[in-house]
Amino acid sequence: MSKWNDLQEHSFLESNARDRALGIVDDGTFTELAGPFDRLSSPHLELLGDAVAFDDGLVSGVGRIGKTPVFVVSQEGRFIGGSIGEVGGAKMANTIKLAIDFHDKLVADYPDLSEEEKPVLVISFETGGVRLHESNAGLLAHAEVMDLFQKARGKVPVISLIGSKVGCFGGMGFVAAATDVIIMSEFGRLGLTGPEVIEQEMGKEEFDSSDRALVFRTTGGRHKYIIGDANFLVADTIAAFREKVAELAPLPVAAFEEMRRVGSPETVERQVRGVALAAEMHPQDARDVWAKAGNDDPASLTDMPLAAFLGQVKRLSV
């Protein structure tokens, strides 16, 4: 197992799922649940003759940041693109269930608990969505997780971390959007249909997935931060993500409600205004939207250092 101290300054982008889970909570507090020694691997992949993993590509567990119990789900992109199948999906859903049950029991047993002492859930996404080898079970898991988010609302805040290689796409893009708050690094990517699938379906003229600059300014952290899909943009280290989670963890649950993108009449209206703006603007490039947000020199935003970017960027308000 990696050493916690060494992990902190590690690139979040390059860290595997277990290192991210371990490093996001306080030193020595992480307990993995349904870990590799439980040998819960996918029965479907085995039948198909595809390689299996002892943890089915998903790390689940619980730790602590300060006084806050932190339930953690962390996806491994190197195992079949971080895809969600039956076992990984069940691990994800049950971690959320556990967080909610824990919250209910804690609040019942200790009615005068401070906000800081109530649990939060952190999900480190690295996934393309459903694992096609076991698509029904994978889709079901997506639905189950979204349903559980609704049950968690007003109880357990759900915090998304997006800054890993694969990004967060497909069904899990919807799942991330349904969480309370999204923290991204500039190397994180978030979307529904991935760049290669758009190119495949609509042609290279519509979207050239080999143009990495285009891919990043359309799905990457900086763009998502400007248009409001991401609440926070942090540096690419485990420590930076951890600091932001530590800052959010003690907040009252009502504060998380205000950070949401979906799930209330106000957020629906905001989304509709966003769609209307897109229809009116017909942006040809993400930079058009950055300019609309009030950034005079949108092209310069791509390459400037993160601190300078955060200091001067104007975010879209609709």
Binding site: A17, P36, F37, A51, A53, F54
Partner: peptide, 18 residues
Amino acid sequence: VPTHTGVVGSSDMEVLME
């Protein structure tokens, strides 16, 4: 101690040693 190393990525493997 029992240990787990590696990720089952393409051209890679994981190992449990107990």
